[in-house]
Each structure stands twice: as structure tokens, then as C-alpha cells.
Write a protein that binds this DNA or RNA. Structure first.
Lengths: 217, 217
DNA sequence: CCTGCATTCTATAGACTTATAGAATGCAGG
DNA sequence: CCTGCATTCTATAAGTCTATAGAATGCAGG
């Protein structure tokens, strides 16, 4: 161990391995990617990878965990905050879509490949995912109590819809590095809050937009 | 050819092969599935599969095509119709989500695995997909002209969002055969049209809900 | 019954993969 | 300099997979 008690070169290289695996799995899929691909991407030989992972499957597990762990954490902070519902929703989208840029491909791998993990590992991830969804559901329930959203909203449906939209944009974000995330976040938040329909009356708003005169056809 | 000019046993079996491949690819992914898996599912031996496909890749191409071809057709009919915007949107969701049930897994395979096809085949599919999106964009433009939706809507964004939501639900539909599709269609259409927000004024509506008093927190 | 054709089978070549074992390398500290 | 440990390498066993070749099967019509 030379110097630090535990986190010397090993920890650093293991993380590099996880990131390499994330990139390769995201591009070729778990089964389409070979351990040689991963090793080559981090500049070592295929066999050496097994110094860091017991198996290819373990690598997948680590990538998936890496992909969601702190994005669940961020969701907890958002949910616990004091902002009004609209701000929380936007913060959620911001956090979720930003993950797709920052963490590169690990979140995508979690979404697309986790089901190739053995039952046991999948259960742990499933709980994290369920927790995320429940936080979101709680946010919607709070929104209803506060009168920010309609009380006819099915919170379970709403949470799944938000997650679904985020992941749909995630797919696009990962493949198109030029997409303006912030624009997407704003438009998506607006869509989720207000829908496409012409609002045919003033809301309570006194906002930035000069409110283009509600021309009807 | 025994009887019919062309579509004797061969055509029938080839379709069976495409469906078997769709099921297996959907479950295990293109690379995770073997030609043996496909053959076994249709009750023949691995080598016999090559009587129907030149390669595993060709099978993937056929599955993807099978997955979208007539769902694009249905979209054309919807777009060309005379219904108001709201009805067209709902028809779109109905068509899209129903495809996930009817066509079993082929549409899912199109979504998840088509990028493993060689450039050339992918281009054909991409055009079909783009066409679908353009039809949807046209629907939104028409909706704006008719005053059904806000003219601030970005039609390109809107089309991608609708497709994204449909595919997100598709993932869930394929894995959960008990999900009530019709309920999902209705809630999703409502979400897309009106959003989650409390509408704080009478629209033109005279609907069922007695409009719970807009309590603020 | 025999011939011809469509369909399926068996067997296998050749390539590629995961995972392991044991050797090499290089650095840290005595 | 030498020893010990962490890290990486080489080589390979054992298995799987795609695709092909040629044989078997069974049916239709003469």
C-alpha cells in the first residue's frame, strides 16, 4: 500500500476501470462489449482487468451503482428543500438531465443494462430506483396539498411520467453532445406544468414573458 | 412451391422466425441473444435458421422493420384525418402504446437495438423514424394554427417529447402485462395537453370535477 | 414408385470470449 | 542492494458463437 492506508493507486485505477466500462457498455451494450474493449480503453491488457473486478458482471454492477448513487442523493436534497413545487420540479429535471452529461454514460448503462445483472444485485438497484420514484411521488403529494397542482393527479403516474421523460431526453443527450440541456429543461418543465394547450385565461402570473396576446385562430 | 406462387410455407416460417427473433432480442438484447435461442423458440435447430436469414444481423433488420412499418402507416392516417388536435394526439398515443402490446416486442427492439445495425440499414429505419416525427411536428403546427395549443410551443421539442413519453411507457408496458394501457393513454394525453398545474380559472370547461377550492399553502 | 424440390438436420471450422495461473516489472523501505 | 508487495503482463484452458457444407427428410406431381 506504499502510502495511504487504502486509497492509493488501486482506488484510482478502479474508478478509471468503472468509467471505462461505463463508456464501453453504453456504446456497445453489456453483451456487445468485451473485457478487452474495456481494458484497452484504460490502457491495460485484458487479463489485468481482473485485478479490479472478479467478473465482467461485477463491473456492470459497479457501473450501475456509480450511475445512480449520487443522483438519488441529490433528489433527496431537492425533496427535503423548502422551495415551491414548480422550483422543485425544475430542480429535479436539472439534476436528472445534468447527470447524463456529467456522469457520461453510467446512468444510461443503469437504465439499459441493469436487467442483465443477477437477481441479487438487481434488487439493490431496484430499491434505489424505487426510492427515487417515491421521493418524486412525495413531491407531487406535497404539490397537491399546497394547491400547486390539481388534486386529480395520480402521483404514481406522474412520477413515472417524469422519470420517463427524463430518460427519454437522456438517450438523446448522450448521443447528441450539442443539445442545449438548459433549454430542454425549461421546455420540459413548462410542458409538465402547463401542457401544450392554449391557456385561455390569465393565470396569476406576472412573469417575464410579455404574454403574447392570446390570439385565437 | 407446391401451391401458392410465393407465400407457401417459406413466408409463413420466415414471419415466425422474425417474431421469434423479436422476442429473444427484446429479452436478451441483440448481442446477448444467440441464434440458437431464436431457433429453439421456433422449434428448429440453430443451423436451419440460416435458411431464412443470411445472418443474425439481417434478422435484426427484419425485426426492426416489422416493428415500425405499420405503426408509421397508422400515424399517417391519423395525421391526415380531420379530427381536432386533442383527438389526434390521443389517437397517436393510442396507436403508439397499442403497438407495444400487439406487436409484442418488435417495436422495443427497434428502439433499443437498431443502432447495432450497419450504417446502411440504419439509414432506412432512421428515415421512417424521422418521417414519424415529422408527421407529429406537422400535427403540432396544425394545432397552433387552429389555436388548440400555444404558439410558443416548439414543435420539434414537442414531437420528441411525445415520442419519448410513449417509448418510456412502452418499456413499462412490455415488462408489465397488467398495466392498464387505456388509463395510461388518458392520463398521458391529459398531462400533455394540460400539465400538472392547477388551472386556476374556468377554462371553457364544464367538466365533472367540482373544482376543489384553490387553497394555497 | 420415382424424381425433384423445399425444408430441416448434423457436423464442424474458425473466431472470439471470459477467467485463471504464474511470471515479470517496478517501486518503497530497511 | 535486497526484500516484499502491488500492479501488470503473457499465455492459455474451456467454452460459446456464427456461418457453411453436405446429408437427410418428406411431400407433390408425373
Amino acid at each position: 500500500m506504499t502510502a495511504e492506508p487504502d486509497s492509493s493507486r488501486y482506488q484510482h485505477q478502479r474508478l478509471a476501470a468503472i468509467k471505462a466500462a461505463a463508456a464501453v457498455f453504453a456504446e456497445k451494450g453489456f453483451h456487445g462489449a468485451s473485457t478487452r474493449d474495456i481494458a484497452e480503453r484504460m490502457g491495460i491488457k485484458q487479463g489485468s482487468l481482473y485485478y479490479y473486478f472478479k467478473s465482467k458482471e461485477e463491473a456492470l454492477g459497479e457501473v450501475c451503482l456509480f450511475g445512480i448513487e449520487d443522483y438519488v442523493l441529490r433528489m433527496e436534497q431537492i425533496a427535503a428543500g423548502e422551495q415551491p413545487f414548480e422550483a422543485k420540479l425544475m430542480a429535479t429535471l436539472t439534476s436528472h438531465l445534468s447527470s447524463y452529461r456529467e456522469k457520461n454514460e453510467a446512468l444510461k448503462v443503469y437504465n439499459d443494462e441493469r436487467l442483465y445483472l443477477p437477481e441479487e444485485k438487481r434488487k439493490v438497484l431496484k430499491q434505489l430506483g424505487s426510492h427515487y420514484r417515491q421521493l418524486l411521488e412525495g413531491m407531487f403529494e406535497e404539490g397537491i396539498r399546497q394547491g400547486a397542482i390539481r388534486d386529480s393527479i395520480d402521483c404514481h403516474f406522474a412520477a413515472l411520467a417524469v422519470i420517463g421523460i427524463c430518460n427519454a431526453w437522456g438517450d438523446i443527450i448522450v448521443r447528441d453532445p450539442d443539445l442545449d440541456i438548459f433549454d430542454t429543461i425549461q421546455k420540459s418543465t413548462d410542458l409538465l406544468l402547463h401542457g401544450f394547450s392554449e391557456r385561455r385565461t390569465h393565470q396569476r402570473d406576472r412573469e417575464e414573458k410579455p404574454a403574447s396576446p392570446p390570439k385565437k385562430h
